[in-house]
């Protein structure tokens, strides 16, 4: 294996040591990631696939290679109910988040100064890294039967409206999780759209709305799709919102994993659900990235 020092030429000794075998110096920097992510990322996921073929007898797991868990799980109606529910909820969250984020990202890209945009992104990054769990708890209090919103409605002699333990509640949770990231990703791609092309469209008599959908959206397509994909991945895998805001019944796939895992030694069955989820996400992600980079005809 040959190494290039990324097109840089230093003194001959350094260049030759970098060009021949991969030297000690290069390995020192390369190996830590390989070792750690192999031992604690690749192997655990591979083990999860293997685990899905194990057997459970008398509440004990027995290593084996039997498709019985797959057959059993896939023949259960509640598994497919959970699958469709999870997929549909994640898809709805993706559409809603993308649609709600777009005007905001558009405004941040075209209607405010660069300083405002930079600060807006600064503040959007903060919640993305800030306890999702506590934010969901706050929503629980806000949306509850006797919570803040219904309290406000009661002042006007309205309500109460059931929001907690409904699909609406789950959706609010998904949006809490995804909105900051989707707005950030959309803003990055919209801000990079060439202003001259927008100007040209206007000069050629293209209306405002039409410019947005025939010029700006196609130019920013990659970023918009990547934002949507992240929203789908996050919502599809999240268990907190459907559990604490959606009432956990009917369960989503992630709740199914938790229930199955925590109820004794049913890990192989949980592994079946987990592997199915990863496969679904891979298909969705690849399809979306394919669509993002496909050349328009």
């Amino acid at each position: 294996m040959t190494d290039d020092t990324a097109g840089r030429i230093a003194d001959p000794s350094a260049a030759s040591s970098a060009r021949g075998r991969t030297g000690l110096y290069a390995l020192v920097w390369r190996v830590p990631l390989l070792v750690w992510q192999f031992l604690f990322f690749v192997v655990p996921l591979a083990f999860l696939v293997y685990l899905s073929f194990w057997l459970v007898k008398n509440y004990r797991m027995i290593p084996g290679f039997d498709a019985i868990n797959w057959v059993k799980m896939y023949s259960k109606g509640y598994f497919w109910d959970a699958y469709y529910l999870t997929f549909a909820m994640a898809a709805v969250a993706t559409v809603v988040a993308s649609a709600l984020a777009f005007p905001c990202a558009y405004a941040l890209s075209f209607k405010v100064s660069e300083t405002v945009r930079r600060w807006a992104i600064f503040f959007l990054i903060i919640p993305f890294f800030t306890s999702y769990l506590v934010r969901i708890y706050a929503w629980q209090v806000i949306l509850a039967e006797n919570g803040v919103i219904n309290g406000l409605l009661a002042l006007r002699d309205l309500g109460p409206v059931a929001m907690l333990n409904t699909k609406f509640g789950t959706l609010v949770g998904y949006l809490t999780l995804c909105m900051p990231l989707v707005v950030i990703l959309q803003t990055f791609s919209l801000a990079n759209v060439d202003r001259n092309l927008i100007e040209a469209a206007h000069n050629l008599g293209c209306g405002r709305i039409r410019t947005v959908f025939t010029v700006i959206v196609p130019l920013a397509k990659v970023g918009l799709i990547i934002g949507a994909v992240f929203c789908f991945i996050l919502s599809f895998g999240d268990f907190v919102s459907p559990y604490y805001l959606g009432g956990s019944r009917p369960p989503t796939l992630s709740i199914l994993i938790i229930d199955t895992t925590k109820s004794g030694q049913q890990w192989p069955k949980a592994a079946v659900v987990a592997v199915t989820m990863i496969a679904t996400l891979l298909v969705v992600a690849f399809a979306a990235v394919g669509a993002a980079y496909r050349k328009p005809k």
Partner: peptide, 22 residues
Amino acid sequence: ALALLPPTIPLVIMGLAMLAWL
């Protein structure tokens, strides 16, 4: 890919895989 993929794996699945392997 190995360096950047982990955040895209749902937390529940990471949790289960880690628990099972560890």
